[in-house]
Design a protein around this nucleic acid. Structure first.
Lengths: 129, 129
DNA sequence: ATGAACCTTCCAGTAAGATGGAAGGTCAAG
DNA sequence: CTTGACCTTCCATCTTACTGGAAGGTTCAT
């Protein structure tokens, strides 16, 4: 199948697939005599894996690592477990950071809703922040 | 005060201050005869405001908007309230997205911890993702 | 007079994941 | 024969908030 069809099947674009190739996520495919990329069917599942990896919050670089392990015939299981554990820790950090920020912003917003603009003095930028 | 001193006082760098000037966050200051930037003391509070705005999760562009309103002599209160409300909505969206993602990743990670590698088949990239 | 510590401008690059466009080749249908 | 839908490469751009470095001017202490 050619790049446009593969893109349609996997819900992405030809542009993105060429980018994925340059990023090492998919191997350079065979070329037809006219120079067109010609993909085999198993690229579909590989790209599905990429999409699932992204849904799991992994970066393309991490997804590429996993794929490369597999390409070398090695089982990526242990590495995947590590990546997922790290991602989980990072998510917990991000979430608690955002919750803290949310509290800060909520307080600022609450105070900004009291329409007591007499307290708004020109010698400061904004009393709410 | 010169740029290095202002940077030290406000906890940033001369490089960043020049960048802030180019981004319209601080006005171009007077220059000494030798061409050095010469800042007045009220730049300190302006930069403190920038830092507080960032702590509230506002972008430099949003902070610049607020400062420009104030620079025009207009009260930014109403605009600030809108910005904070939008930021709060966005934070809620981000947080719930991350919580959802955390659930997904936690499940994947849990299943990846069962060391049943007999299920790891070479014809798929990784059964965990 | 010389070295350190400032300052200046300008240009380039970083992360991440694409996206847009130019200029051109290929192929099938009408 | 031409139109339209594909495909190719390469280069530039987007976002955000800086950061690095080159090449050079200024000031102060020793």
């Amino acid at each position: 199948m050619r790049i446009g069809e593969l893109a349609a099947v996997t819900g992405t674009t030809a542009k993105t697939l060429r980018f994925y190739e340059s990023a090492g996520l998919i191997p350079p495919p065979h070329r037809s005599p006219n120079g067109y990329r010609e993909y085999s069917d198993d690229m579909v599942s590989r790209l599905d894996f990429v999409r699932r990896g992204q849904s799991a919050g992994l970066s393309l670089a991490q997804i590429a690592e996993i794929l490369h392990l597999r390409d070398e015939g090695r089982s990526p299981c242990a590495h995947v477990e590590t990546l997922l554990a790290e991602r989980l820790e990072e998510l917990d950090r991000q979430i608690s950071d955002l919750l803290e920020l949310r509290e800060t912003v909520a307080k600022l917003h609450e105070s900004s809703r009291s329409p007591d603009s007499s307290l708004c003095r020109p010698d400061q930028v904004c009393r709410y922040i």
